[in-house]
Computed example of a mutant assay.
Amino acid sequence: MSEEDDAIVVQLADPPNCPRCGEPGPVSAQFSHSWKNASGEKVPGIREVMLCPVCNRDEPAADGLLAFLAVHETLEPSELETFHNLSAAWVAVARARQVDQQQLDDEYERSRNGEL
């Protein structure tokens, strides 16, 4: 089974604040995530992503879910399929997003040099 086939846990009640900007977000999701360590072995884990109305603005999948949640304060049974489809689209984009290694390396060097 691939990671994409694993369960996704979506949290609507009291999700954590956005780790990038600190703003409250309406939803978070957790899903399986793995990487290869220095020896090439697969390391399994779990990744959590936040839907942030500030940081995710102008991302089509995020905008669709944000608009839906702005209109629907509570989820009715008739809206669950739409919510599911919008959430799945957002998680697929978030799951594919990778770390900008150059930016991470630059920030690490600035931190070592006392510039952060």
Rank of each mutant, 00 (worst) to 15 (best):
S2N: 12
S2Y: 10
D6Y: 12
D6R: 05
I8M: 01
Q11W: 05
A13P: 02
D14E: 14
D14F: 10
N17Y: 04
C18V: 11
C18K: 10
P19E: 08
P19T: 10
P19N: 13
C21I: 10
G25A: 07
G25R: 01
P26V: 08
P26F: 03
S28W: 01
F31N: 02
F31D: 01
S32W: 04
S32N: 07
H33V: 04
H33P: 07
S34K: 05
W35C: 05
N37S: 09
N37A: 11
S39E: 12
G40T: 06
G40Y: 02
K42Y: 08
K42C: 12
G45W: 00
I46Y: 00
V49F: 00
M50K: 05
M50A: 14
M50T: 08
M50D: 08
M50Y: 13
M50F: 09
C52K: 08
P53V: 07
V54K: 15
V54P: 04
C55V: 07
N56F: 06
N56H: 12
D58I: 09
P60H: 05
G64L: 04
L66E: 03
A67R: 14
F68S: 03
A70W: 04
V71C: 09
H72D: 04
H72Q: 12
H72K: 13
E76W: 00
E76A: 04
P77T: 05
P77A: 03
S78R: 09
E79G: 01
E79N: 08
L80F: 06
E81L: 08
T82V: 07
F83Y: 11
H84N: 14
N85V: 05
N85A: 13
L86F: 06
S87G: 07
S87P: 02
A88Q: 03
A89Q: 03
A89C: 05
A92H: 07
A94F: 02
A96C: 06
R97V: 10
D100E: 12
Q101P: 12
L104R: 15
L104N: 14
D105K: 15
E107Q: 14
E107L: 15
Y108D: 11
R112W: 13
N113M: 13
G114E: 13
L116P: 00
L116S: 10
L116D: 11
